[in-house]
Amino acid sequence: MAGLYIHIPFCKQACSYCDFYFVTRKSLIEPFTDSLIDEIQSYANTPLSDEVIETIYIGGGTPSQLSSKQLKRIFDAVDNVFQLNTTEVTMEMNPDDVTPGYLHSLLDLGVNRASMGVQSFDEEILQFMHRAHTKKEALQALENLHKAGFPTYTADLIYGNPGQTPEMLERDIDQLLQFDPPHISAYSLTVEPQTRLGKQVQLGRIKPPEDESVAEHFDLLLEKLSSAGIYQYEVSNFSKPGKEAVHNSNYWNHKNYLGLGPAAHSFWWTEDGAKRWENQPDIKHYLDRASSISDEPEELSLQTLAEERLMLGLRTKWGVGSGELINRYGYQFNESQKNWLDYQERNGMLTITDDVVRLTPNGLKLADLLIVDLLSKG
């Protein structure tokens, strides 16, 4: 089974923290839709259209900037080219775009999982983030999701904002939990250099919170969500049992996926490894369909793939099995790594059960540091 990722690069405005590829010229949406359909059709009768598609994820940007008519054209093209047996079709959306009629049209198209970009219910934080929606619109959007009868959905929260107290975060969490969400993605605010936030930090106009404060936010989040039956299954993702994101889990498990649209990435297994390629992050280039839209594929060796699988898998509750590493990648832990794993197990950072290495809750807090340390001993 494989997945499709479709990147819709349009946004109303630039959020202060975002470094994803996006454009704000709505006049380009219709020609973009034409180009996207052309790209989809270019895969007809190729090896990449032979594999059954299990999941579709429509991300961005803000996919809800597209009309239901434009989305239907895209879905029809996908249906004509690819073999679909989808269990999960996710679409990102912003609260200010969502109306009951629009949500029902998405359900009619086959979208069965919404990803709602709430981020916060605090008006000052929303303004700091330069979000386009208000608290009222976020609450109304979540209410509309319930009334429309979406089978499942996820909502995003961002914590660790400058000036955000634990009490402010607790209010955000409590407000969201009133809707009994099946899934929450919660991210610590990251300062990316080329963003508005990054430039303000560089100029000394904004001071990010201390690590201890961010850690306090995370502990509060973990406690509140677990008490509500929403459990951490990946560093930034929490769900009720059985409501974990299938598409994202496929990324972490190195399943094939094809990316469509500007800046979209693809990953595909080959006979002796895998290859990864990226569509160029350039809307003008994408609209000029006379030239190639993707860069040359990067060839990935089994060694590189094994290390990547460790990086991705150890960030999840499922961990990584040594048997999988050997059978799939020909990778084995050396003596130095085995000694490190034994030490970290005694230190309470990980467990090893039936040859599967899993980070403990304490280990997941330091996942990136621990994983880099493990790989450095390889």
Rank of each mutant, 00 (worst) to 15 (best):
R25H: 13
T190W: 00
A290W: 11
Q65D: 13
P47T: 04
Q127F: 13
T152G: 08
S35I: 07
R276K: 14
G110W: 06
A264L: 00
Y17I: 06
P361Q: 07
L341R: 05
M116K: 06
R171M: 10
E143S: 15
A155F: 09
L305T: 06
R131N: 07
P193D: 02
V191H: 01
Q83T: 11
D34K: 14
T304Y: 12
M311R: 12
R196A: 15
F238R: 03
E167N: 10
E123D: 13
Y17D: 07
H7T: 05
G60V: 06
L366E: 11
H104K: 15
M91G: 00
M1P: 12
G163L: 05
K26C: 09
L350Y: 06
I40P: 05
E210N: 15
Y257C: 00
L225P: 08
H183I: 03
E30G: 10
T62A: 06
G229N: 06
G60I: 07
L369W: 11
E271S: 13
V320P: 02
T270C: 06
L310P: 05
S266K: 03
P181T: 04
Q65V: 11
P166H: 01
W252D: 01
W252M: 00
T62Y: 03
Q13E: 12
K338L: 15
L107N: 12
A44I: 12
D180I: 12
I293P: 02
Y57H: 10
A367L: 00
P182V: 02
K317T: 10
K243C: 08
K26S: 14
C15A: 03
L109I: 07
T360N: 04
I371H: 03
A138F: 04
L302W: 09
K147C: 09
S291C: 06
I125K: 14
G198N: 07
L350M: 14
D368Q: 04
A306F: 05
T152L: 04
P297H: 03
Q119M: 09
E345N: 11
A290Q: 14
I58R: 02
S322Y: 14
E324K: 12
N347K: 14
N112V: 09
S236L: 09
P31Q: 11
A138L: 06
L66E: 04
Y286F: 10
L375V: 08
Y231L: 13
E324H: 14
Q127I: 12
A263Q: 01
P193A: 02
L189K: 01
Q178W: 12
Q13G: 07
M93T: 09
I58S: 03
R73T: 11
A148M: 03
E298K: 11
N94I: 01
L48Y: 08
E299R: 14
Y257S: 01
G3P: 06
I158V: 11
Y102A: 04
C18A: 05
H254Y: 00
N339P: 05
S27Q: 14
T24C: 13
G204S: 10
L177R: 02
Y286K: 03
P208I: 08
Y329G: 04
C11P: 04
R25L: 11
A132K: 10
L300K: 03
